[in-house]
Computed example of a mutant assay.
Amino acid sequence: MAHLDTRRHPLVGLAVFAAAVAAVAVIGSLAAVSSSAEYEQLRTPSWAPPSWLFGPVWTALYVMIALSGWLFWKRNGTGPELALYAVQLVLNAAWTPLFFAAGRYGWALVDIVALLVVIIALVVAFGRKHRPAALLLVPYLAWVGFATALNASILSLN
């Protein structure tokens, strides 16, 4: 059986990145939906966005995350930068079940702070070799920074 070189078939590579990010999105969606009633009961800061905003924001961010990884890979292949990319996906996937499904706001805060640090490292690493791929992650970095402050505030209020 012939080996499929995904770099020669970039759409296959795009499908792989899209599938990986979609898996993270599904994990988050299932955890959030199963616990939406509990979230509505939490004390939140006055600056917390309405619940309906999270879905559209995360959808746009997940598209940018997948495109970023794919563009970087298409130009540079695999390497330590994509290991960081994988770590941020794992941390991202872990946060929603920790926060929503388990109600572990403290552990969720630890996770999201680690995620924030990894995203910063990833933006820097991608920026050294593929600036557009790095720039696609900047809205994600900003949103996770905001979500970190929101998580900390919810932990403090509850």
Rank of each mutant, 00 (worst) to 15 (best):
A94G: 06
V16Y: 10
A83V: 12
I65P: 04
Y39W: 02
V117G: 07
A48W: 02
F54P: 04
R43V: 01
A66G: 08
G13P: 11
V33Y: 03
A2I: 01
F100A: 14
N92D: 03
G145A: 14
A19H: 14
R131S: 03
V26N: 12
A22M: 15
K129I: 00
W47E: 01
R131W: 09
A101W: 15
W143Q: 04
Y39D: 00
L141R: 05
R43Y: 00
A101V: 07
L82W: 03
V57L: 05
F100M: 10
L91N: 03
A25D: 07
A147G: 05
F146W: 11
A142F: 02
K129F: 06
A101G: 11
Q41I: 00
F146I: 01
A133N: 10
A94T: 06
H9C: 08
M64A: 15
S153D: 13
V90W: 01
S29D: 08
L109K: 06
N76Q: 15
L82A: 03
L4C: 07
K74W: 07
A114I: 07
V144S: 03
L157D: 09
R75I: 01
V144Q: 04
W52M: 07
F17K: 11
V117R: 02
A134Y: 07
S51K: 06
A25V: 13
L115A: 08
H3Q: 12
L91E: 02
T96W: 03
Y140H: 13
L71T: 07
A22N: 09
V12H: 15
A93L: 00
L115H: 08
Y62A: 01
V117D: 03
S156H: 15
A147Q: 02
L30R: 15
W107E: 15
G77C: 04
L61E: 02
D111L: 06
V124Y: 14
V90D: 00
I120M: 15
P97D: 02
A20Y: 12
R8L: 13
G127E: 04
E40P: 00
F146T: 01
Y85Q: 06
Y140V: 03
